[in-house]
Deep mutational scan, measured.
Amino acid sequence: SELMNSSKLIRMLEEDGWRLVRVTGSAHHFKHPKKPGLVTVPHPKKDLPIGTVKSIQKSAGL
């Protein structure tokens, strides 16, 4: 199965306009000026399962 580095996923979010608002432990929480909701990324993780990545991307509207 495909894995993604959390840094790469965070870069994709930031390029889309998401900004880090809070860190709780290894959970990084992002908000967007125009899009609704809060997106949480486990970080640092070298090997996020593709299912997790897809669900984060979906929440972020990517």
Rank of each mutant, 00 (worst) to 15 (best):
Q57D: 02
R11A: 15
A27K: 09
H29N: 08
K34A: 10
T24H: 11
K35G: 03
K34V: 14
L20T: 07
M4N: 09
W18M: 00
I50K: 08
R19W: 13
S7C: 09
D47E: 14
V41P: 00
E14K: 13
H28I: 05
E14H: 09
V53R: 03
G61K: 06
E15W: 07
K46G: 09
D16P: 00
S55A: 15
I50S: 12
K34F: 14
W18P: 00
S55E: 15
E14W: 10
L9P: 00
I10R: 02
E15A: 09
L20C: 14
V23P: 04
L20Q: 06
T40Q: 10
S55N: 12
E2S: 11
H43D: 04
V39R: 01
I56A: 02
V39Y: 01
L20V: 12
F30E: 00
A60I: 06
K54T: 09
G61C: 05
E2C: 10
D47K: 12
H32C: 01
A60Y: 01
M12Y: 07
T40A: 11
T24L: 10
N5D: 15
T24G: 12
M4E: 05
T40M: 12
L3I: 12
R22W: 15
P44C: 04
T40N: 07
E15R: 09
M12N: 05
S7W: 15
I50L: 10
G61T: 03
P42W: 03
V39Q: 03
K46W: 11
S59G: 07
S55T: 10
S55R: 15
L13N: 00
T40V: 12
T24E: 11
I50H: 13
M12I: 14
K34N: 12
S6L: 03
S59C: 09
H29W: 13
T52G: 02
K58L: 13
V53P: 01
L48K: 01
P49M: 05
I10A: 02
A27Y: 15
K45P: 04
A60K: 01
A60L: 05
E2W: 07
A60H: 02
A27I: 10
S55L: 11
K31D: 12
K58P: 02
L3G: 14
L48G: 01
S1L: 12
S1W: 05
T52P: 02
L20N: 05
S55M: 11
T40I: 10
K45G: 06
H28Q: 08
K35F: 03
K54Q: 12
H28P: 01
E2P: 12
S55V: 07
E2I: 11
I56V: 06
S7V: 08
K31F: 09
H43T: 03
H32S: 03
V39E: 01
K54Y: 06
N5S: 15
I50V: 12
V23M: 08
V53C: 05
G17H: 04
G25T: 13
A60S: 04
P33H: 12
L38F: 09
L9C: 05
P36W: 07
L38R: 10
K45D: 07
E14Y: 12
V21M: 07
A60T: 03
G17S: 04
K45E: 09
Q57L: 15
D47P: 06
L3D: 09
N5G: 13
P44H: 04
K34C: 10
S6Y: 04
